[in-house]
Design a binder for these strands. Structure first.
Length: 464
RNA sequence: GGCCCCAUCAUCUAAUGGUUAGGAUUCAUGGUUUUCAUCCAUGCCAUAGGAGUUCAAAUCUCCUUGGGGUCACCA
């Protein structure tokens, strides 16, 4: 059984990059009837934010993917880590290092001055003497001093590091005995049964250290997939500073989870020329072996297109429900279907759609000046005056086609083109020159309000 | 700087060593539409550079250049 995990540190909110990694892990696990687990990496008490963990859960809930089992908090597992640290100490695979911070800093400065790689000098590796006074030791693990470390990565292929280039006896427990990242990741991934690790490729250079821990503890290595980064428009790693990258901000902006997911799954992964993927299709088609090796740049143009696509294809009932998050309540509106049909093809986001709906439903408070000038050239007011009485003939039916009929009757009577009624009527109804079909708008707002809006605009002085 | 990763249109990406290098988004133009949008059609736009291997290279090798990541008692 495949078990994958998402293991964020609770230092901020979930952003696009993390969400995509989570999506890949989720899809891969679910496709294989495996498990997807969530672990909060909060070993460093000084950088802990409880709200952030909740924000991740919220974002997951919105996206509709659910982790299996309880959330694991590393801060609750200190006893476990301590046990393994003691085991390594007992076996002589790790040791106490009494080098003070000052000494360590001095060592590093010397190394930098000599243009050497900064690294711990292993001075306490085989120390048997009396420890210095006043220094709480850290625990360091014995790492190989030479030889090749080979990662067989599912995306990058074989990646080879030389131990002497990158390794030293790194700290696995701080002087307060709290364990460090590279140690707990290895311990937890093993203990939680995680056998396929899908994570950002910024972790690639951590992997050798984790492999040292796996080796020391005699654990079997998981399969690694290091997914390329998503970069911002400057080509740099996506960070919390990049503005609206908080996943929940996409909800506020009016994006649907389906669109966001579809967008993310195609960032770094593809299946031939296919652009649109339902959740079901992702589940059957996704395979991490098809993930790209190169980083991609994050850009919302395609997300907008996808979101519009999903909006157009969303059933009206569901649309109405979604719009309630944007202050639109249509449950009691008798022309709900006509209204939704009129706006669903002209909005990129739910928020935009909400604005369009408000514009239709509310009597215009002002009129676009350029539009007024253009629409009321010539005898437009007479056309409108002649149109108004015709409204009486649609007392019974209130379908867009009924209104279309009387618009046609008016232009025939007045011997003018469609534009001659369309433009002034549009200004009267919407206050501007663009928007949904007028027959639909009138059907939605009804006779009285249509008449009301016509009378209002006839009182306005047309700018010359 | 050391180490590691990466390199196809502006962007997301296709292409068993043999294609007029394909699709999508954006943009432009035309059609549909009373308007706007949708939709449809068309167009513009790419293999970073240089060697090599091969009958044949976007694809394999090397170098250069460029970009990114990482080098903590952070995760």
């Amino acid at each position: 059984m495949i078990v994958t995990r998402f293991a964020p540190s609770p230092t901020g909110y979930l952003h696009i990059g993390g969400l995509r990694t989570a999506l890949f892990s989720y899809l891969w696990a679910k496709k294989n009837n495996g498990k997807f687990v969530l672990r909060i990496e909060d070993t460093d008490a000084s950088r802990n934010d409880e709200a952030a963990a909740l924000a991740i859960v919220d974002a997951f809930a919105w996206m509709g993917f659910k982790h299996d089992g309880e959330i694991t908090y590393q801060s609750n597992r200190m006893d476990i880590y301590k046990k393994y640290i003691n085991q390594l100490l007992d076996e002589g695979k790790a040791y106490k290092c009494y080098m003070s911070r000052e000494e360590l800093d001095a060592l590093r400065e010397t190394q930098m001055a000599n243009k050497e790689r900064t690294r711990y000098d292993n001075s306490y590796r085989d120390f048997t003497g009396t420890p210095p006074e006043g220094v709480e030791p850290v625990i360091r693990i014995k790492a190989p001093e030479s030889g090749a470390i080979i990662i067989d990565d599912g995306i990058k292929g074989q990646v080879v590091f030389q131990a002497e280039d990158i390794l030293d006896d790194f700290v696995i427990a701080r002087s307060d005995m709290s364990p460090t990242y590279n140690f707990v990741v290895a311990v937890d991934d093993h203990l939680m049964g995680i056998n396929e690790v899908i994570r950002g490729d910024d972790h690639l250079s951590n992997t050798p250290k984790q492999m040292v821990v796996y080796e020391a503890l005699g654990f079997t290595l998981p399969k690694f997939y290091h997914v390329p980064m998503i970069h911002n428009s400057e080509g740099k790693k996506l960070s919390k500073r990049d503005g609206a990258t908080d996943v929940m901000a996409y909800k506020e902006m009016g994006y649907t989870p389906e669109a966001l997911m579809n967008f993310l799954v195609r960032l770094g992964w593809s299946h031939g020329d296919q652009e649109i993927f339902s959740m079901q299709e992702m589940l059957t088609l996704f395979d991490p072996k098809d993930i790209n090796k190169s980083a991609s740049i994050y850009n919302t143009e395609k997300l907008d297109w996808l979101n519009a696509h999903y909006l157009k294809n969303m059933p009206n009932e569901e649309l109405a429900q979604q719009l309630e998050n944007y202050d639109i309540v249509l449950t009691s509106h008798d022309k709900k279907e006509i209204l939704l049909d009129a706006v669903k093809e002209r909005a990129k986001t739910l928020k935009e759609m909400a604005t369009l709906i408000k514009e239709i439903l509310a009597t215009p408070e002002s009129y676009d000046e350029k539009g007024l000038k253009k629409a009321f050239k010539g005898n437009a007011d007479e056309v409108l005056k002649s149109f108004a009485p015709n409204l009486e003939t649609v007392k019974e039916l209130h379908l867009p086609s009924d209104y279309h009929t009387i618009m046609e009757k008016t232009i025939t009577d007045m011997e003018v083109g469609f534009g001659k009624i369309g433009q002034p009527l549009r200004m009267a109804l919407l206050g501007k020159m663009s928007g949904p079909g007028l027959d639909s708008v009138m059907a939605i707002i009804g006779n009285d309000e249509t008449l009301n809006r016509i009378e209002s605009i006839l009182e306005v002085t047309i700018p010359s």
